[in-house]
Amino acid sequence: MIDHTGIGVSDMARSAAFYDAALGALGLRRVAQLPENVGTDGIGYGVDYPVFWIDRYHPHGVKQHTAFAAKSRAQVDAFHAAAVKAGGTDNGPPGLRPTSTGYPPGYYAAFVMDPDGNNMEAVFRER
């Protein structure tokens, strides 16, 4: 089980605006900032503690993929809309993914490229 993860970004202010909107749609918020209360070096998103960090310490532009769990199809839809509105690029609109391409049944997801070209996903797994 992963406790937390993160990525490097090239522009903290631009990426913070993107992740504030995209992750906010999933119920995540800034819970930690480095330096404290400023967030120019790193920002941690979560509910009670940071589970996803953006920072200027790690290399940016390595084209990573991160999938965030959504609680409903509506959250996936909201994530996609907020992320695109905040400067992300659509990389797969919200919808059920076909089992014929290897997705399990009930895999409802949306994909957005962040400002640094990382593929961010929100997924709701219907069971």
Results as ranks from 00 to 15, higher is better:
Met12Trp: 10
Gly87Tyr: 05
Tyr45Gln: 13
Gly6Trp: 10
Tyr57Val: 07
Pro115Val: 02
Ala86Thr: 00
Gln33Cys: 08
Arg73Tyr: 00
Val62Cys: 10
Thr101His: 09
Thr5Cys: 13
Asp11His: 11
Ala13Ser: 15
Gly8His: 07
Val31Tyr: 05
Gly87Arg: 01
Thr89Met: 08
Asp11Cys: 07
Ser100Ala: 14
Ile7Lys: 06
Lys85Leu: 05
Arg127Leu: 03
Arg30Asp: 15
Asn119Ser: 08
Val38Asn: 13
Thr66Ser: 13
Met113Val: 01
Pro93Cys: 00
Arg56Ile: 15
Ala70His: 03
Tyr57Phe: 13
Arg73Gly: 00
Gly27Tyr: 14
Tyr108Val: 01
Val62Glu: 15
Gly88Glu: 05
Leu26Ile: 01
Ser10Asn: 09
Gly44Asp: 11
Ala82Met: 07
Lys63Thr: 08
Val62Tyr: 11
Ala32Gly: 03
Thr66Gln: 12
Ala83Ser: 06
Arg125Cys: 14
Ala82Asp: 04
Leu26Phe: 10
Asp77Gly: 01
Val62Asn: 11
Pro115Ser: 00
Asp55Met: 05
Ala69Asp: 13
Tyr108Glu: 01
Val9Arg: 00
Thr99Lys: 15
Pro94His: 01
Asp20Phe: 00
Gly24Trp: 11
Val38Leu: 13
Trp53Ile: 03
Trp53Cys: 03
Ala110Ile: 02
Asp11Met: 07
Ala17Val: 05
Ala13Pro: 07
Pro104Val: 05
Asp11Val: 09
Pro93Gly: 01
Ala86Ser: 02
Gly102Asp: 09
Glu126Tyr: 12
Pro93Arg: 02
Tyr107Gly: 07
Ala67Gly: 10
Asp20Tyr: 01
Val38Cys: 07
Arg127Phe: 04
Pro50Ile: 07
Asp41Trp: 05
Ile43Arg: 02
Ala74Met: 01
Pro93Ser: 04
Ser10Tyr: 10
Ala83Cys: 12
Ser100Trp: 07
Phe79His: 01
Trp53Pro: 03
Phe52Glu: 04
Leu96Met: 06
Thr99Ile: 13
Ser15Trp: 00
Phe111Gln: 00
Val112Asp: 06
Gly106Thr: 12
Arg56Met: 15
Arg56Gly: 15
Arg125Ile: 05
Glu36Trp: 05
Asn37Ala: 14
Val38Ser: 13
Asn118Thr: 08
Val47Leu: 08
Arg97Trp: 04
Phe111Trp: 06
Val123Ile: 13
Ile7Pro: 11
Ser15Gly: 09
Gly39Ile: 12
Glu121Phe: 08
Ile7Arg: 09
Tyr107Glu: 08
Arg97Glu: 10
Glu36Met: 12
Glu36Cys: 02
Val62Gln: 15
Asn118Trp: 03
Phe18Tyr: 09
Val84Ala: 04
Pro105Arg: 15
